[in-house]
Amino acid sequence: METILAIVIGGLYGTGLYLMMRRSMVKLVLGLALLAHAANLLIFVGGRLVRGVPPLVANGAIAPPDGSADPLPQALVLTAIVIGFGVQAFLLVLLKRGYTLMRTDDLDDMRTTET
């Protein structure tokens, strides 16, 4: 299963980077979103996969059951998801603003600071 996920992650990285290398700014943002997914999954899978045993402490117990998933990568990824969303939202609005001002989505037309 890990092998399959590793291939998925590679695919996400590849497509994300490909989109980031395009001239359109919308594609850049889309690519960045894919890259974020790829990185999150990478950390998650790197922390090893466990089926059906989340790191939760049952009532009356003092620790999660043996063989439960590692909580640390999950915590890291959770932070990453939220931050990624913030960045994405900001980028999107910036994109909209840029388009309103410059009437273009082509990054090559945005090389000068003057509009």
């Binding site: 890990e2 590793a6 996400l12 990285y13 590849g14 497509t15």
Partner: peptide, 18 residues
């Protein structure tokens, strides 16, 4: 091609880590 190489390398990298 560049992107595919990078993606493939990430797959390989993860497999080595695992």
């Amino acid at each position: 091609l560049v992107a595919a190489t990078a993606g493939g390398l990430m797959t390989l990298f993860l497999l080595i880590v695992l």
